[in-house]
């Protein structure tokens, strides 16, 4: 099976300096934030790869880089074998035709002034292809009715809007869909509808998902392979069952322990220590060391390399 998406040493820096006048007056240096730090991964065709992490982990930025909405600072982003960072704009656009995206907030991702029909058909209409009946067909495919095509987004609930977003994403027959927290704005009962729909579509159409989420339960349900991000770096990557059965990185272990569970009545555990550090001045060495129970002097000074343990890739000096 060939890889749909391949990232090699992907890095993205954001300039978070104050305006130049402030820098001159207050004698501040330029400040950069490394949102994505040397991330390499492969997503095989017709699989679901999930990126999990907390806020500031860079998971959304990676999704947007692959979608071409944010440029990469360095590294390689291959979509169906074409590097969209180094190649010309036209070839990159051609490669991205196979790629669509579903966004987190179903209220912000549909233009409130457009009819549903026009929203769904837009990706096709923009290439000058006829779109008769396309929106109606797709609406039925995502579980809405063809009559909804003439309505405006505000007439729909959050879950229905997310179905419309999915319909739009499917309109141009993509092979890859980037799902950026597609259900975090939805209620649980509606979330399950949308997740089921996404699973069904994946099987019917042979789609590949890059699934971005902070919710471990959702990721566990959807993903084939999971990458855990901390401060922009991929700290652990493994097949789903492997990761949940045997998390290697202390950060992954902490995430699993901290997640609220339905069977944990009155659970009395020591909550994890500390918070995510400032990404502009991350701690030296392994970024996780100030919160890590295993941290040694090595961790405080040397950035760990990615190591392979069985099916797991982990970025920790002490994992075994």
């Amino acid at each position: 099976m060939s890889a749909s998406i391949r990232l090699k040493s992907l890095t993205r820096d954001f300039d978070v300096s104050k305006p130049w006048l402030n820098r001159v007056i207050e004698r501040l240096p330029r400040a950069t934030l490394r949102a994505v730090d040397d991330v390499s991964l492969e997503i095989p065709e017709n699989s679901v790869y999930a990126l999990v992490g907390e806020s500031g982990s860079g998971k959304s930025t990676i999704g947007r880089i692959v979608a071409g909405l944010v440029p990469a600072s360095s590294g390689v982003v291959e979509v169906n074998g074409i590097d969209i960072v180094s190649t010309g704009a036209e070839q990159a656009a051609e490669a991205r035709r196979n790629l669509q995206m579903i966004f987190q907030d179903p209220y912000a991702s549909l233009n409130p002034r457009w009819k549903v029909r026009d929203i769904i058909a837009e990706p096709v209409a923009i290439r000058g292809v006829a779109t008769d009946g396309l929106a109606e067909r797709l609406l039925e495919q995502v579980g809405l009715s063809a009559a909804d095509a003439g309505k405006f987004p505000h007439e729909f609930s959050g879950g229905q809007r997310q179905r419309i977003c999915i319909a739009r994403a499917l309109a141009s027959h993509p092979r890859i869909i980037i799902c950026d927290e597609p259900t975090s704005a939805l209620d649980v009962s509606v979330q399950s509808q949308v997740l089921n729909l996404m699973s069904d579509l994946r099987e019917e159409m042979g789609l590949t998902y890059l699934f971005i989420s902070h919710d471990l339960t959702v990721v566990q349900h959807m993903a084939d392979r999971i990458g855990v991000l901390y401060l922009g770096a991929l700290v652990e990557e493994a097949p789903r069952d492997r990761l949940f059965a045997e998390p290697k990185h202390p950060y992954t272990q902490m995430l699993f322990a901290a997640a609220p569970r339905m069977d944990a009545f009155g659970r009395e555990v020591e909550p994890p220590k500390g918070e995510i550090p400032d990404a502009i001045n991350p701690p030296p060495g392994c970024h996780y060391h100030p919160r890590c129970p295993l941290a040694t002097d090595l961790c405080r000074s040397v950035v760990p390399e990615t190591r392979r343990i069985g099916a797991t890739r982990v970025r920790c000096h002490h994992a075994e």
Partner: peptide, 13 residues
């Protein structure tokens, strides 16, 4: 900054 604009950028508008 809203996502419908991002969606439009994505499809190459």
């Amino acid at each position: 900054r809203r996502d419908y604009v991002q969606a439009a950028r994505l499809i190459g508008r």
